[in-house]
């Protein structure tokens, strides 16, 4: 069961690599967050922990509904074309994602936590983090970088819940709030960039040098 959910996360991450337009990217992010919600819920069932239910609820509300809705809203409001501006085309991105997944497999085996089920979760977690970073640097639009950051954060969450049994409850809450605030603030800056530059293409932000 757990394994299936982990593969669900991985698949939705690969979907992000081949997304060419903003709505597709946000939809894949939604799937990824939903799988994380299910995994946290399942962990709550099996370990009989009430705080896990609460964290799962937060994921559902924040990462499946509110944050994707905010991203979509921002994308619609700034009203520029929705293409992501791929530096690396979809096929090559997928190949890169596969290579990164293999690297994270090697990396997590090298860390030496031992048990099999932990190893799988760690591999998925690192793969999600690496692919998130890859998305940040291989797409031109400012909003994609925000999504890349969120993907990395999701990966870190999977790592935390699989390796060290999650963080203390109030730290988890604080981190969720922090992520939420950062999405709002980044959204505000995307608006400002769009207003001042009339585009959100970060490769053209090159006034400051040297």
């Amino acid at each position: 069961m757990r394994q299936i959910l982990l593969f669900g996360i991985l698949t939705s991450t690969y979907l992000m690599c081949i997304a060419k337009r903003m709505p597709a990217l946000v939809r894949s992010f939604r799937y990824q967050s939903f799988f994380i919600f299910l995994i946290t819920l399942a962990a709550g069932f099996s370990e009989k922990r009430i705080d896990y239910y609460f964290v799962a609820l937060l994921i559902l509300v924040l990462k499946v509904f509110i944050i994707p809705a905010l991203l979509n809203l921002t994308a619609r409001r700034i009203n520029v074309d929705e293409n992501l501006g791929l530096f690396v085309n979809a096929q090559l991105s997928l190949v890169a994602a596969l290579v990164l997944s293999y690297c994270s497999w090697v990396f997590s085996r090298g860390l030496g936590f031992g048990q099999y089920h932990k190893l799988l979760a760690m591999t998925v977690a690192f793969a999600v983090i690496f692919i998130g970073a890859f998305l940040m640097i291989s797409r031109m639009k400012a909003l994609t970088q925000v999504v890349g950051l969120l993907v990395m954060e999701n990966g870190v969450f999977i790592l935390a819940s699989s390796v060290s049994g999650g963080m203390p409850f109030f730290v988890e809450i604080a981190i969720f709030l922090d992520v939420f605030v950062s999405v709002i603030i980044m959204g505000l800056f995307v608006f400002r960039i769009n207003k001042l530059f009339t585009h959100i293409d970060v490769t053209k932000l090159s006034r400051l040098k040297g």
Partner: peptide, 30 residues
């Protein structure tokens, strides 16, 4: 234009960097 560009770079680079720090923190706790 200059200040908004600087703020954007600042927020993106530092947030991405600091997510790695969160990863490190989790490894410490593990």
């Amino acid at each position: 234009k200059g200040s908004v560009e600087a703020a954007w770079k600042y927020i993106i680079i530092c947030s991405a960097g600091i997510i790695l720090a969160l990863l490190g923190t989790i490894l410490f706790s593990s």
